[in-house]
């Protein structure tokens, strides 16, 4: 088991190198000159060239890449061009908020998705199944930002149940306050992922229900709950887990939009502002952070596979 995990971690290295190259290329090949943006429209050609030289942006791309990557490895993620702050502490500080939001959403999405998937599969083709799946389809189709705004209007403005922006009310730091602020953004963010998980759970459970071992389980006279939650779900959960891992990636990406709508102080807002300002170091830092998280989440998923499915060998 330990060697399996080590091998998986070893395999991450090329993936992460690829990610850094992509991140770097995308930012540098996209149009827009940071020096121009920083100096404003009245800047002279000389001052722009001077600033570019100062920032090292006049050097060939591969030199810039190696400078950046070696700095990243030593913990120096550069300074934000726009905010004039160290990137790493800035991103790390904001990332906590995003992670909290994403985790909450994935919890909601998993609970609702797996729950409704099981009910749908167990009552296949019934009205319960049909209405659940319709609901799920709608949830999947709604754009996150639109859903966010609707939730703000309904639960925030009309019903006044939950706060609609920020992480804490001014002057407060309590857990309860944080929880209330979390509700609407996590709900908005979880809709799409929950829908995907529900559909996957349903089809996976339907397939498992047809298996011989489910018939065997029933023939043993054990109660139906055990048949569903132990014999069926344990098998059906394996493909759902794959989707779950991928959804975490989408959630991190979707968080950007939700954070904008709810003014959630996460990396999403940071990144959007960074992109608008062509703030290379900042955007690279954020993307690298998100990509690494995604890769690590999928590593955890792979390890969970091996735990859940005894047929996957560690060798």
């Amino acid at each position: 088991m330990a060697s399996y995990i080590l091998r998986r971690i070893w395999g991450l290295i090329p993936v992460l190198i690829g990610v850094t190259i992509l991140v770097f290329m995308i930012m540098h090949l996209s149009p827009g000159d940071p020096a121009k943006i920083m100096l404003g429209p009245k800047a002279t050609t000389e001052s722009i060239a001077k600033l570019n030289a100062e920032l090292g942006l006049d050097q060939p791309l591969y030199v810039q890449y190696f400078t950046w990557i070696s700095n990243v490895l030593t913990g120096d993620w550069g300074r934000s061009l726009q905010l004039k702050m160290e990137v790493l502490p800035l991103v790390a500080d904001r990332f906590g908020a995003t992670l909290l939001l994403t985790l909450c959403s994935i919890l909601i999405a998993t609970a609702i998705g797996i729950g409704s998937g099981i009910i749908s599969a167990y009552r296949k083709f019934s009205w319960t199944d049909r209405s659940l799946m319709l609901f799920v389809l709608v949830g999947f189709c709604l754009p996150v930002f639109w859903l966010g705004i609707i939730l703000q209007i309904v639960f925030g403005l009309k019903l006044q149940l939950f706060p609609i922006s920020g992480m804490y009310s001014p002057g407060q730091t309590g857990l309860m306050d944080l929880f209330l602020h979390l509700v609407l953004p996590s709900l908005a963010l979880s809709a799409g992922a929950g829908a995907v998980i529900a559909r996957m759970t349903r089809s996976s459970m339907l397939e498992v229900f047809e298996q011989d071992y489910i018939r065997t389980a029933r023939s043993k006279g054990i109660n139906e709950r055990r048949v569903i939650y132990i014999h069926a779900l344990k098998n059906a959960f394996i493909p759902v887990l794959t989707v779950l891992g991928m959804q975490i990636g989408f959630l991190l990406a979707g968080a950007v939009l939700v954070e904008m709508v709810f003014a959630w102080p996460g990396i999403g807002t940071l990144m959007v502002n960074g992109i608008l300002a062509r703030d290379f170091p900042l955007v690279q830092g954020v993307i690298l952070f998100v990509a690494t998280t995604y890769v690590i989440v999928n590593l955890i998923v792979d390890i969970l596979y091996a735990i859940l499915d005894p047929r996957i060998s560690y060798q």
């Binding site: 298996q211 071992y213 018939r215 065997t216 014999h231 098998n235 394996i238 005894p310």
Partner: peptide
Amino acid sequence: MSSLNPVLT
């Protein structure tokens, strides 16, 4: 081959 649950001992 298929009558026993593959993920339970």
